[in-house]
Amino acid sequence: VCKIPGCTKRYTDPSSLRKHVKTVH
């Protein structure tokens, strides 16, 4: 789960989560 408040994205792959946080937030 993305830890950013208001963001409901969920990832099973830690690298995908990291990429999401870097690119989306």
Rank of each mutant, 00 (worst) to 15 (best):
P14W: 04
R18H: 13
K19T: 14
V21M: 14
R10H: 10
L17Q: 09
V21H: 04
S15A: 12
V1G: 02
T12L: 04
S16A: 14
L17Y: 07
P5M: 05
V21L: 05
H20T: 01
V1M: 08
S15N: 15
V24P: 08
G6P: 01
R18N: 12
T23Q: 09
V24K: 05
K19S: 13
H25D: 08
V1Q: 04
C7N: 02
V24E: 15
T8P: 07
H20M: 03
I4W: 05
V21I: 04
T23S: 11
C2A: 01
K3M: 04
S15T: 11
C2K: 00
Y11V: 09
V21G: 05
K19W: 10
Y11D: 13
T8Q: 11
H25T: 04
R18I: 12
D13P: 01
R18Y: 09
T12F: 03
V24I: 08
H20K: 00
V21R: 02
P5H: 03
T23I: 11
Y11S: 11
T8I: 06
V21Y: 02
S16L: 14
T12W: 00
T23D: 15
V24L: 04
S16M: 12
R18V: 15
S15Y: 03
K22F: 12
Y11C: 14
T8M: 07
S16W: 02
K22W: 12
P14L: 09
R10M: 11
C7T: 03
D13M: 01
K3D: 14
V24N: 08
K22Q: 15
K19C: 14
P14V: 10
S15G: 10
T12C: 08
K9C: 06
G6R: 00
T23Y: 03
K19N: 11
I4F: 12
V1A: 02
T12K: 14
T12G: 12
H25F: 00
V1I: 12
K3W: 09
K9F: 15
T23V: 07
V21A: 06
C7K: 02
K19G: 13
K3V: 09
C7P: 01
T12M: 06
L17V: 05
T12H: 08
T12N: 13
H20V: 02
K3G: 08
T12V: 07
R18C: 12
K3P: 07
V1H: 01
G6K: 01
I4V: 10
Y11W: 02
C7F: 00
C7V: 01
Y11Q: 09
G6N: 04
S16P: 03
T23W: 03
L17N: 05
P5N: 08
S16I: 06
S15V: 10
C2G: 05
I4Q: 09
T12S: 10
T8E: 13
V24H: 11
P14G: 10
K19R: 07
K19A: 14
C7A: 02
V1C: 08
G6A: 02
K22H: 06
V21E: 15
V1S: 04
S16D: 14
H25V: 01
V24D: 15
I4E: 12
P5R: 03
S15M: 13
T23A: 13
G6D: 06
K19V: 12
K9L: 09
K3Q: 11
S15I: 08
C2D: 11
Y11L: 08
S15H: 08
K19F: 10
H25G: 04
V24F: 09
R10K: 12
K9P: 01
T8L: 08
C7L: 00
R10N: 09
P14S: 11
H25N: 02
H20P: 02
